[in-house]
Amino acid sequence: MNEQIPSSTVRVFIALAPPDDAKDELARELEPAYRAYPRLRWNRVEDWHVTLAFLGELPVAAVPPLRPPLADLAEARRPVDLALRGSGSFDGRVLWSGIDGDLDGLHRLAGEVRTVVRECGIAFEERPLRPHLTLARARRDDLSGVVEAADGIASFTGRPWRADRLHLVASNIGRGPGPIRYRDIASWKFTGER
C-alpha cells in the first residue's frame, strides 16, 4: 500500500484570472489547434491565469502570512480592464496568448503585489512582467506545433474584461504524472478607488 506523504512545501503564485466567457471565446478560437496539435500539453481552460508574481516552492507555513496584506492590497485597488489578444511562443516551447488593455495598471498592480511578497520576507526570482496567458507546452521529445499554433491565433482579439479578483494560487507541478492543476488558496475582490 502506497501512502501519500503530505508535502511540507507548496508551489505558489499570485495571479489574475479571465472570466469564463473570455476564456471560452479563446478556447473556441483554439479548436483547430487542439485538433491539429494533440501532442502539445494543453493547459486546462479553467486553469488559465495571468501571473503577477511567481513565488516558486515555499514552506507551507510561509503562505498564511501573505493573506492579510494581499487582502488589504485588493481592498485598496480597483479592478484592471484587460483583454486577450494575439499569441506567441517562448523559445518555440510555450504557446501563449497576449494581454491587452490597461497594461500600465497591470504593471503597477504586479509591482505592488511583489512589494507585499518582499515585505512578508519571501525571496523569489523577480523576472520582468511579460503579461500573457500560457496555453500549452511542447513535449520534450516533440517541439512541433507551438509556433504553428501561435501563428493560427495571432490575429485573435478577445472582448474586453475586468480582472476583479486577486488570486493566491497553488500548483501541483512536479507532484506526479498527469496535467498541471491549480487551486486557489484564497482570492480577494478588488474594491478600492486607486
Rank of each mutant, 00 (worst) to 15 (best):
L16Q: 13
L16G: 12
A17S: 15
P18D: 08
P19Q: 04
D20A: 10
D20P: 04
D21G: 00
D21A: 03
A22R: 01
K23C: 11
K23S: 10
D24V: 01
E25M: 00
E25C: 00
L26I: 02
L26D: 01
R28A: 12
R28F: 02
L30C: 06
E31G: 11
E31N: 15
A33D: 10
A33H: 06
A33I: 02
Y34V: 03
Y34I: 07
A36G: 06
A36C: 03
A36D: 15
L40Y: 05
L40R: 07
W42G: 01
W42Y: 09
N43D: 06
N43V: 06
N43Y: 03
N43M: 08
R44A: 09
V45H: 00
V45E: 04
V45Q: 08
E46N: 11
E46G: 12
D47R: 01
H49V: 07
V50L: 15
V50C: 14
L52C: 13
A53G: 14
A53V: 09
F54V: 05
F54E: 07
L55P: 08
G56N: 08
G56V: 10
P59S: 11
P59W: 03
A61C: 06
A61N: 11
A62I: 01
A62Y: 04
V63E: 09
V63G: 10
P64Q: 01
P65M: 07
P65K: 07
R67E: 09
P68H: 01
P69D: 05
L70S: 12
L70C: 11
L70G: 12
D72H: 11
L73P: 14
E75C: 07
R78L: 02
R78A: 15
P79V: 13
P79S: 13
V80G: 13
D81E: 15
D81C: 05
L82V: 12
L82Y: 11
